[in-house]
Design a binder for these strands. Structure first.
Lengths: 139, 139
DNA sequence: CGGGATCCTTAGCGATACTG
DNA sequence: CAGTATCGCTAAGGATCCCG
């Protein structure tokens, strides 16, 4: 019954309010999970690993995202302390986004996922094709 | 491999789709990423690490999910070759879900994310509180 | 017990236009 | 340049009923 995540180190003892387990809805870890369970978060945070980036750069780098959603995502990431927004020039408005320490630690984990997707994307394609083919014949 | 996503198909896949699926970006890794960028995937796959589970067990374990969405998610995971669905008894219908080899490899990465969420969930809470407070005073 | 079918509500996103 | 505001659509999800 135990999740491979033994998060009961010191948190469970004192907090007492929630279990701290991601499987419980309405606890902080769950909120965190839902925040990072976004395709855009999975792209934006790792993109910032190489250094600060500006709005337009992120917009170009992150294929498929719209300006609106980029803004929303960045604001949410900033709100949760993962990204730091810095205004560096007011003349032709220069804004930079960079990872916080917290953001860096998360980004490391996300990079692993990105790599997994790049490595196994083809395998998923193949599996889908197989599944759909056999589902077709079954119908 | 440079991490932050190759910026190749920006112009190419521009005027392609309008079917409803937001990114028809034909990149398999992107498809893979979108599949796993779901809070339910992030919970279900690690839940299966301990061994096969039945529908009801997953339903109970994964707080907040509905039967409908659970079915959808499991079918999609099966379709992509991450989860194997096995009917073990037809009398009172006994169905088990278990990880494929591919699913195991992904689950490892997901567990890392779950642990991150459990570890840093409180920090995100705090950051949010700070952000909202200062946003309040700025208004 | 597992899960498909239907209906209906909502949240998310794209497109467009505007501002500091 | 870096956003915000508004509108209209659609697709995700909850609720319910039913079937093998």
């Amino acid at each position: 019954m135990s999740l491979p995540a033994p998060a009961h180190s010191a948190a469970a003892a004192n907090a007492a309010e929630h279990t701290g387990n991601v499987f419980d809805e309405a606890c902080s870890s769950r909120l965190a999970l839902e925040l990072i369970a976004s395709k855009w978060t999975l792209l934006i945070l790792p993109a910032l690993q190489d250094g600060p980036m500006r709005n337009n750069a992120l917009l170009r780098r992150t294929g498929g995202i719209s300006q609106k959603v980029l803004s929303q995502t960045l604001r949410e990431l900033e709100r949760n302390g993962l990204v730091i927004r810095e205004v560096r020039g007011t003349k032709p408005l220069h804004v930079e986004y960079r990872l916080s320490a917290l953001g860096v630690s998360l980004s490391d984990a996300l990079v692993t996922l990105d790599r997994w997707a790049e490595t196994h994307g083809g395998a998923l394609d193949a599996a889908r094709e197989r599944y759909d083919a056999s589902a077709q014949s079954r119908r």
